[in-house]
Computed example of a mutant assay.
Amino acid sequence: MSARTWHLGIPAAVAVCLVYLWVNFHLVPDPMPVHFGPRGEPDGWATKSFGSAVALVALGPGIVALTGAASAGLTHAVAQDAGERQQMLSREIMPPLAAWLFWIATVNAVGVTGSLLGHHGPLSSLLMVGSLVLVTVVFARQMVQVHRRVDAAYPPSEKDRRGRWGFYYDRDNPEVLVSLENGMNTTLNLARPAAWAILAGLLVVPALLIVLVSVAG
């Protein structure tokens, strides 16, 4: 399917979940669970309201849809001013990227809908996380195939070969942030100590936030 079809599938999937939730709204407890802990058990509650339930179901997919639209627009805009290799890469990336975002949004919408209807707990959380991991693995394999097709049609430069799959290592390059694919991608040069400091910051900050939120909950 085309990237456009996958993108349009996100609001369609949310709509299906909302219809199902509306039909079965009598099963939602009052007060209604609005937050879940690491084990998938509810730890936050609010007065039962279909409007609030709609917001909970649509929030995650809405963020995913906006992120996908922004990524697609940026990639297309950059590729327009790049060479034939970059334009082919942009065309080939869009459908699997859109499909990946669709499945992430759908898993999120289904998971939240099920949680509101009482299907929550460690098993539900495990199924949700497992589904997200599965679709991400499939997406990664598709990206490998995309790069192979593009490389076969337009062999990459030496610089781009050093930047496969988000990793770049070149002691002779003094840059910390390296532009690849004629500006379509930017990655860290892991041969530079500053790059490792940036990477550590990107990983540590979210981890600390998760810990703080868990402790506060």
Rank of each mutant, 00 (worst) to 15 (best):
H147E: 10
V204E: 08
V211S: 04
V213K: 06
P42D: 02
H147I: 05
L8Q: 10
R171A: 14
M143F: 04
L74W: 11
R85C: 03
G83K: 07
V54S: 03
W196F: 08
L89C: 13
A194Q: 09
L188C: 00
G217E: 03
R149G: 02
L134E: 07
S125F: 14
V16I: 15
V112L: 10
V110T: 11
L123F: 15
I198L: 15
D160H: 11
D170C: 02
V54G: 01
S52C: 08
S71G: 09
V144H: 13
A191K: 05
H35I: 00
L180H: 08
R4Y: 00
F139S: 14
T186D: 06
M143A: 00
A79R: 03
M32Q: 06
V205R: 10
S52D: 15
L180K: 04
Y154Q: 01
T75V: 14
G37K: 04
L212P: 03
L180C: 06
A153T: 11
W100E: 04
G62I: 01
Y169N: 07
M94H: 09
A79T: 08
V146I: 08
A12K: 03
I104W: 09
S131P: 06
H35A: 01
L126D: 05
V34S: 10
A197V: 12
L117W: 12
S131W: 04
G62W: 02
Y20Q: 05
L188D: 00
D43T: 01
E175T: 01
A82E: 05
W100N: 06
V16D: 06
S179M: 14
Q86E: 15
L8W: 14
G118L: 10
L117M: 10
Y154F: 15
H26G: 15
S2R: 01
V110K: 10
M32A: 04
I198K: 15
E158G: 07
V211W: 05
V176K: 00
D81V: 10
M1C: 09
E41S: 09
T47S: 15
G51R: 09
V137P: 02
T187E: 02
L177S: 12
G111I: 07
M143H: 02
E175K: 09
Q145H: 12
T106D: 12
Y154K: 01
T67C: 08
T113W: 04
R161I: 13
W103T: 09
E92L: 14
P29K: 14
G83R: 07
E158I: 12
P95V: 03
D170V: 03
A12G: 05
T47F: 11
I63Q: 02
L177F: 13
A194R: 10
A53V: 01
M88G: 04
A216S: 11
T186A: 09
F50C: 10
V110W: 14
G37M: 06
R91V: 14
D81A: 13
L97V: 10
H76E: 03
L209A: 12
L18H: 01
D151T: 01
P38H: 03
T75G: 07
L199Y: 12
L74A: 15
E92P: 04
